[in-house]
C-alpha cells in the first residue's frame, strides 16, 4: 500500500474512520498546546492576545479554506500569495491614481477572479499540471505587482479602510474575524453538504472515473480556481487594510504557509480526502503554537523549524502503522 488515500477502492466508511482519527489527534494536540500556553504565559488568555493571535495570520487562514478545496480536488495553487500581493498592490495603485477606495475594491475583486480564471483555463481546459501553471503565475502575478508599485510603498488609504483591518468591528473583534467565520461556514456547507462538494472529492479521488461517469470535471476545477483567485484577492485587501500600506513584497511566500496548514489538517496531497474541520483544527494549532512561541521569545528560525517538523509529522504519520493504531481504537475493524 503506497498511498492510503488515493485509491478509489476504499470504502467510504474506512475513509471517514481514518479522518476522524486524525482529527482526534489534532484535537488532542491543540488542547495540549493551549494548556502549555496558558500555564506558561500570563498574557496568553487575554482578549487582546487572542485577537492578535488570529489577526496576525487571518489572511492566510482565510485562503487555507479555499486551498482545502483545491488540494482535495488533487490540484495545487501556488499562486495564491502572488494573487494576494497583486490584489494589495493593484488596490494601492488604483487608489494612488485617483480611483475611490470603494471602486478599487470592486476592480481588485474582478482582477482576482480573472487571475483565478487564467489558472483555471490552463489547468481545466488546456489540461496542464496545476503545479506548473500556478508556479508560472506565482512568478507572473508577483512581477505584475512589483511593476505596479515599483520599489515604493503606497500608504495613506482612507480611514474607514484602515479601520476595517486594524480596529474592532463589534467590540474589539475585527471585521476580518467575522469574515473568516462566515467563509468557514460557507466552505463547510459546500464541501460537506452539497453536490459540488461530493464532486470535488470524486474528481480528486479519480478524475478518469469521474469523467466516465459524465461529470464535467473542467467546470468543477474552473470554479475552484476562480474561487481561489477571488478569496486570495479578498485576503490581499484585508492585508492592505491591516498594515495600512502596500509594497511589492506583500504576502511573499504565504502560499507555503497556507499549503502547510491544509496538509497538517489531514488533507491528502494526492487529493480525494480531507475535511474542513481538519483544516480548522490545523490552523488553530499553528496559530496557537506560533503565538506561544512568540510570547516565549522563540526566534524565527526555530519557529520555522517547529512548524516544519509538524508538517513532516502530519505527512508521514498517516502513512505509518500509527494510523491503524488510531483506527483500531476509533472504529469497528473497518480496515482491510
Amino acid at each position: 500500500m503506497t498511498n492510503p488515500n488515493a485509491g478509489s477502492a476504499h470504502s467510504s466508511k474506512s475513509l471517514f474512520a481514518k479522518l476522524r482519527s486524525w482529527e482526534a489527534f489534532l484535537t488532542f494536540a491543540l488542547i495540549l498546546i493551549i494548556l502549555v500556553n496558558s500555564t506558561l504565559i500570563p498574557q496568553y488568555f487575554t482578549i487582546a492576545n487572542q485577537i492578535n493571535l488570529f489577526q496576525l495570520s487571518i489572511e492566510k487562514v482565510i485562503v487555507a479554506l479555499v486551498m482545502t478545496f483545491v488540494i482535495i480536488n488533487a490540484e495545487i495553487d501556488l499562486s495564491v500569495g502572488s494573487i494576494m500581493g497583486l490584489a494589495a498592490c493593484l488596490f494601492g495603485w488604483l487608489f494612488q491614481n485617483g480611483i475611490s477606495a470603494e471602486m478599487a475594491i470592486v476592480i481588485v475583486m474582478i482582477a482576482g477572479g480573472l487571475a483565478g480564471a487564467l489558472n483555471g483555463y490552463f489547468i481545466a481546459i488546456v489540461g496542464l499540471p496545476s503545479l506548473v501553471v500556478t508556479l508560472a503565475t506565482l512568478i507572473g502575478f508577483r512581477g505584475l505587482a512589483r511593476v505596479l508599485v515599483e520599489d515604493r510603498g503606497i500608504t495613506g488609504f482612507p480611514d474607514w479602510f484602515d479601520a476595517l483591518g486594524q480596529q474592532g468591528l463589534i467590540g474589539p473583534v475585527p471585521f476580518s474575524f467575522f469574515a473568516f467565520i462566515v467563509l468557514f461556514i460557507i466552505a463547510f456547507i459546500i464541501l460537506h453538504r452539497s453536490a459540488f462538494g461530493r464532486l470535488t472529492y470524486t474528481i480528486g479521488n479519480n478524475r478518469e472515473v469521474a469523467e466516465f461517469a459524465g461529470v464535467n470535471t473542467a467546470a468543477v476545477k474552473m470554479k475552484i480556481f476562480i474561487s481561489s483567485g477571488l478569496v486570495a484577492a479578498f485576503a490581499g485587501l484585508l492585508y492592505a487594510a491591516r498594515v495600512g500600506a502596500v509594497r511589492g513584497d506583500v504576502a511573499l511566500g504565504f502560499e507555503l504557509d497556507i499549503i502547510t496548514l491544509v496538509l497538517l489538517g489531514g488533507v491528502s496531497i494526492f487529493g480525494g480526502s480531507g475535511t474542513m474541520v481538519g483544516t480548522l483544527l490545523a490552523l488553530l494549532i499553528v496559530l496557537n503554537l506560533r503565538n506561544g512561541m512568540a510570547l516565549m521569545n522563540v526566534t524565527g528560525h526555530i519557529q520555522t523549524g517547529v512548524i516544519g517538523l509538524l508538517l513532516i509529522v502530519s505527512v508521514v504519520l498517516p502513512r505509518l502503522e500509527l494510523t491503524r493504531l488510531f483506527n483500531s481504537h476509533n472504529s469497528q475493524g473497518t480496515k482491510q
Binding site: L56, G253, G300
Partner: peptide, 18 residues
C-alpha cells in the same frame, strides 16, 4: 529576536505586536 529572511515583513509585524 528576529524573523527569518523569507518571513521578514510578517515576522517583524508579529514580533512588534507580541
Amino acid at each position: 529576536v528576529g524573523p527569518t529572511p523569507e518571513n521578514s515583513v510578517a515576522g517583524q509585524i508579529e514580533i512588534m505586536t507580541t
